[in-house]
Design a protein around this nucleic acid. Structure first.
Lengths: 116, 116
DNA sequence: CGTATCGTTCGTCCGTTGCCGAACAAGCGG
DNA sequence: CCGCTTGTTCGGCAACGGACGAACGATACG
């Protein structure tokens, strides 16, 4: 399971790429789920899309520096890079997250248990 | 010069459309120029693109509810809808603007005088 | 070992978007 | 009334991006 180390350094994170990553509803939804700071397993993420597509979205987020991925055996765990993002673009992530919640964007992405 | 009244109502402004509008460097640059709250004439905006393209960008911003356009005779004037945006998505615009400035995004859009 | 599981990669399809030049519509000025 | 200026619209092109299924590599497990 190659290529998981492509989390860019703080200084190489750019606004266009971050904005591009967060401009997609599904990816915004993923970030919403991760927004409490806790780690999530790949398989815990639920979205009505093919797994190859989900993998693609996770890759975009990772390469934009929005998330970080840790690998353990054959499965991997995703984390939001809150501090890094906030250091680079103060206030952006919280505002974006709040706006997403207020506007019901990304609600189609949930966790496995789906406590509803 | 038809169709200038398409500034959407506050409640119809959606995050995806706003984010989509602001995900383009040129449009972000336009918003940067307008960010002081002052009105600008169409012709005052300078960007290295064809005027039809500029018109297109202005239309996207207007329809997303990011800007407002006033028409006077044969020319029109553009304003940022700061209050509306901030009412709908608190903190989003300032954070986005600050991030754009910090990351030198949209600097290819300037004003006519180009006081440099 | 053989097989199941997990996540990535590949190739393809198709709708969207940025960009342009040309044509057009509308007010202004001689 | 004619032409100039101003901004919009149209048609077309090329690039991008999301979506999918299939195939693959890697690890876990019986």
């Amino acid at each position: 399971m190659p290529d998981h180390s492509s989390s860019p350094a703080l200084s190489t994170i750019t606004l266009p790429s971050v904005l591009g990553a967060l401009s997609d509803p599904t990816r915004l939804g993923i970030v919403r789920v991760l927004s409490d700071g806790n780690e999530r397993g790949w398989g815990e993420l639920r979205a009505p899309i093919a797994k190859s597509t989900l993998s693609h979205h996770l890759k975009v987020l990772r390469e934009a520096g929005v998330t970080q991925t840790r690998q353990e055996g054959t499965r991997c765990f995703v984390t939001l890079r809150r501090e890094s993002l906030d250091a680079r673009f103060p206030g952006l992530l919280p505002a974006l997250l709040a706006a997403a919640v207020a506007d019901h964007v990304g609600e189609h992405v949930t966790e496995r248990d789906a406590a509803k």
